[in-house]
């Protein structure tokens, strides 16, 4: 049995309102998690990159995944797409991104949309780390 005195206690970060809001808003609007913490340049660069990637993916006739319980790759595609937050909600609300793939580079579009969502997950996690003071 481990000696209680030898167990290292990891310092717990205080759960503040900004620590909850920053990643949530960052997920909903890419880069906004940084902007509300006054990281203007980082926030704008993240927003520009993620929004451009998502829009270019759609412009390349990429496919937008819907919630599904079928093929594992389709499920993972949906998880990636959902990462884009508000962009995904808007594109689903407008019922876009369901066209038949007509040319080879349309597959790039599908990947652009998925990766934009995954990058937004990373961005939201970064906003959380800034909020708890783990990163300057």
């Amino acid at each position: 049995m481990a000696n209680p005195s030898t167990i290292k206690e990891t310092p717990t970060q205080p759960l503040t309102a900004i620590a909850v809001l920053a990643p949530a808003i960052g997920w909903l609007i890419p880069g906004a998690g940084h902007l509300i913490q006054k990281r203007w340049i980082r926030g704008l660069l993240l927003m520009a990159s993620i929004v451009c990637m998502f829009v270019l993916g759609y412009a390349m006739q990429g496919r937008v995944y819907r919630p599904n319980g079928g093929d594992i790759l389709d499920i993972l595609g949906f998880v990636g797409d959902v990462g884009a937050g508000g962009l995904y909600i808007v594109i689903r609300a407008l019922d876009l991104g369901q066209g038949a793939i007509a040319h080879a580079t349309a597959d790039y579009g599908t990947k652009y949309i998925i990766v934009a969502g995954l990058l937004n997950f990373i961005s939201a996690a970064d906003a959380y780390h800034i909020a708890i003071g783990k990163k300057p």
Partner: peptide
Amino acid sequence: LQLSHFSAAVLFGVFASVV
């Protein structure tokens, strides 16, 4: 929008690298 394979890959790299 129809990009070439190369330009699509380079643009992908630009956006991912920034993030």
